[in-house]
Simulated assay, not measured.
Amino acid sequence: MKQVQRLLDQLQPTAPAEVVCIPGSQEPEGTVIVFTGSFNPPTIAHIALLKQAQHYALDIYGPAHVYAAFSKRTVDKEGVERPVLLDRIMLLRDILRRRLPAVGILLFNRGLYVEQAQAIRQSFPKVKRVLFLMGFDKIIQIFDPHYYKDRDASLEELFSLAELFVVPRGDSGEKELAELLAQPQNKRFARYVISRPFDAAYRNISATQVRQGGVSYEHEAPQEVRHFIHRIRPYAPPVKRLDGTEQDIYQEHLAYLTQHIGPVS
């Protein structure tokens, strides 16, 4: 945890695009598939998507390295505070070690895919091909001019460095993706987008539902996540004691980490 926190401390969102591997992850080379997300928390759908990416990559490109990735600045999720990034990284690392040991973890300082592609190309010269794995909601975001000063220039730069590996959700997902790519402003970029179906069993699972709990929570989160939520209570309000005071178990957890490894983020 100290090593990972030191890497996070080094990554500054205002600095030029940068990426690092967490300890134990193989350095990227050849063809790499990168699945960037907040993983708050990791769900069985996240794990299934990474597993499917391994199979799809082998069928399409031959051997490829697959990575989950976090950013110090996640676009449209800048307000996420609990659990802290260190906890989410360590939780996903533990899950991957048990279930998908060949999948590594990357850390970025910037949130846009074009910035992340730049960072990979600059930091890992042995990489020959970069694909970003994502759902349909993310590709809508990528083509949205709201996120750019000059959308077309940024997309041209992105697609000079990387391609998109899209896994649509729902029965209408393929049709929606085709319609998006057929729009006049997007047509010229369509050849950089690859699509493969996602197992229907995972299509309606979301991290938001896991955070909120409910009847499906136990089935949508890996055992490691369920244990983390029960033990650390990152999504729960403070517990009221009999004397009227409150106990915030997650804040106590953060205080413990700060005492032993220093300030955490």
Rank of each mutant, 00 (worst) to 15 (best):
M1P: 08
R6P: 00
L7G: 10
L8N: 07
P13M: 05
T14L: 14
P16N: 09
E18A: 12
I22V: 13
P23D: 00
G24S: 08
S25G: 05
E29H: 12
T31R: 08
F35V: 10
G37K: 11
S38T: 15
S38N: 13
T43R: 12
T43D: 11
A48L: 10
A48I: 06
L49M: 15
L50D: 03
K51S: 15
L58F: 10
D59M: 11
Y61I: 01
Y67F: 15
Y67P: 04
F70T: 08
S71F: 05
S71H: 04
V80P: 01
E81A: 12
E81F: 02
P83M: 03
D87F: 08
D87P: 00
R88N: 11
M90Q: 14
L91Y: 02
D94K: 15
L96P: 15
R97C: 05
R98S: 13
R99K: 15
R99H: 10
I105V: 14
L107Y: 13
L107S: 08
N109S: 09
R110S: 07
E115Y: 09
Q116P: 01
A117W: 02
A117K: 03
Q118G: 00
F124G: 11
K126R: 13
K126M: 13
V127M: 06
V127R: 00
V127Q: 07
V127Y: 00
K128S: 14
L131R: 12
M134P: 06
I140D: 13
I140P: 00
I140Q: 11
Q141L: 05
Q141Y: 04
I142A: 14
F143E: 06
D144W: 07
D144H: 11
P145I: 08
K149F: 11
D150K: 14
R151W: 06
F159N: 03
L161D: 09
A162I: 01
L164P: 02
V166D: 09
R169Y: 04
R169G: 06
G173S: 10
K175F: 09
E176H: 05
E176N: 12
A178C: 04
L180P: 02
L180N: 10
L181C: 06
L181I: 02
A182R: 07
A182L: 00
A182I: 04
P184F: 04
R188L: 04
R191G: 01
I194G: 00
S195G: 01
R196H: 11
R196M: 08
P197D: 13
D199H: 11
A201E: 04
I205A: 10
A207T: 03
T208G: 10
Q209G: 15
Q212I: 03
G213S: 09
G213P: 06
E220I: 03
A221G: 09
P222V: 01
Q223K: 15
E224K: 07
V225A: 13
H227N: 06
I229K: 05
R231K: 14
P234N: 07
P234E: 05
P237K: 02
P237W: 01
P237F: 02
P238E: 02
P238M: 12
D243S: 01
D243V: 11
G244F: 13
T245F: 02
Q247F: 14
D248A: 13
Y250P: 07
Y250I: 07
Q251A: 15
H253R: 08
Y256E: 10
I261N: 03
G262T: 09
P263T: 09
